Structure formats: structure tokens, C-alpha cells
Computed example of a mutant assay.
Amino acid sequence: MTEFKALTFDCYGTLIDWEAGIAAGLSALAARLPTPLTRDQILEAHARHESDQQRLTPDMPYDRLLQVVYERLAQEWGVACTRDEALAYGKSVGDWPAFPDSASTLQYLKKYFKLVIVSNVDNASFRASNEKLGVAFDAIVTAEDVGSYKPSRRNFEYLFDVLSSLGIGKEETLHIADSNYHDLQPAAEFGLRCCWIFRRFEQRGFGATVGTRAEPSVDFKFTSMAQLVKAHHDELAHG
């Protein structure tokens, strides 16, 4: 890990616990169902509608897109929802919690690397999340900036332009993410080395992330950001 000059991060699912945020934001809607759904069933339905809507409207800001997802879920489940509820869900991203290890590990890594975010959100939503992460990123790339959503090639092309402006090459960059679909697979196709933060290692299924057939092919694999930091610390200690 000491070979790299920059770390690029997915945010939601990797640094921010979006599954907790999504489940909380949909709890009232799901409670109207006559037959309860499991947490994973709710998350998987959300992933399906979110990815569909991102393909249909790649330039739609994420807060607005979440409103549409909320309304589509209500329609699929056959339950009523109000416009205000959908609007509130779209604005809820800033309330999604950070993983307990995110802020402290980012502050450690900032001492050794340039830190860059590449995330599928709008700028206002990320600013609210960034307050929970407690670090100043060297660059931030959002879907709103690019006009498309990962796994689109456009998002990674945009990222490479940003890295180049920082004087950092592809071979000097490690991409860190939880999602194979959104990040690890397309990043590897662009020649980035990758690190998988496997947050769902104790759970089955893909949760809020679109499923893929194969397990990610990565250079590093950890179940937390804290493990990643320990690996870096150990490398430094052993020269």
C-alpha cells in the first residue's frame, strides 16, 4: 500500500453506511405493507429501482432521483405515499451515518496520501455527508459534476482528468470501494488497482448494491477501513 500516492474512494457503502440510512428512510413506507419485508428485501428493491433510474436519467441529481425511487417503491408495493414523504427521502442522504471507523481512518490516511472522492450523489448531499467524515478531501467527483452515474465510463474518465490535474498517474492510485458493480469492476477495466472494503462480510446477498456474478478481482481485500489502516501501518513499521 505504500506504493501509492493517491487513494480514491467510493463514499456510500464504503465510508457512509447507506444501508442503515436507506432502511431507516424507507421504514415508514415498508410498515404499510400487509406482509412485512426483510431488511435485505427492502434494500434489494431499492437497488433495483435506483440502478434502473440512473440508467434512464443519468443527469438527474441524486436527491431528485431518490424521490423517484421512493415513489416507484410505493407503486410496486401497492402502498400510498405523499409527495412530501418522497421529497424528505430525497433529502435524507445527509442524515445517513458514517461507519464508526471512517473519520479516524481518513484522518490517518490524509497524512500519507492524496484523498479523492468519486461518488454517485449530488454535491449538496455529499457536503452534508462530508461533515461526518471529518477530513478535507483533495478532490471530489460527484455524479452531478459528471452528468452520469457509476459504473459509467464517463465517471472514471472524469476521475482520471482530476488525478492528472493533481499530478498523479493511474499507476500511483488505489481505488477503494465496497461495490463491485459500481466501482471495483469498472475501475479495474480502466486499469486502476483496487481495494475491496467488504462491509457485508457477515451477511448474505448484495443488499443495496446491484449484484454481480463474480467476486471482485482486487489487489487488497479488507472487511473494514480500520483493517486497511492497520495493513498500511504494518508496512511502514516493517520498512
Rank of each mutant, 00 (worst) to 15 (best):
A136L: 12
E235R: 13
N155A: 12
H175Y: 09
W196I: 02
K221N: 07
A226H: 09
R55C: 02
L236V: 06
T105P: 10
A177G: 04
V162W: 05
T173I: 10
T8V: 15
L166I: 06
L174P: 00
A103S: 05
T173W: 00
P100R: 14
G78C: 10
T57Y: 14
A187V: 02
E50N: 12
M225E: 10
S119K: 04
E235G: 03
N120E: 05
A98S: 07
A20K: 13
R55E: 06
E50P: 00
V116H: 01
D145W: 02
D10P: 02
T35I: 04
L37V: 05
T57K: 01
D52V: 06
Y89E: 12
D52T: 09
A31K: 05
Y12L: 11
D59Q: 12
G211P: 10
A24V: 06
R193F: 08
E235C: 11
E19R: 03
H232F: 15
Y62E: 06
G207N: 12
P36C: 00
W18Q: 06
E71K: 12
F222E: 04
K150R: 08
G147L: 10
K230G: 03
H233K: 15
H232K: 08
R39V: 15
E157W: 14
T2F: 04
A237E: 13
L43T: 02
E157P: 05
G78R: 10
G207F: 08
E19Y: 07
R204K: 12
A20H: 03
N120D: 13
L56A: 13
S51M: 11
L43F: 10
V79A: 13
P61F: 13
L43M: 14
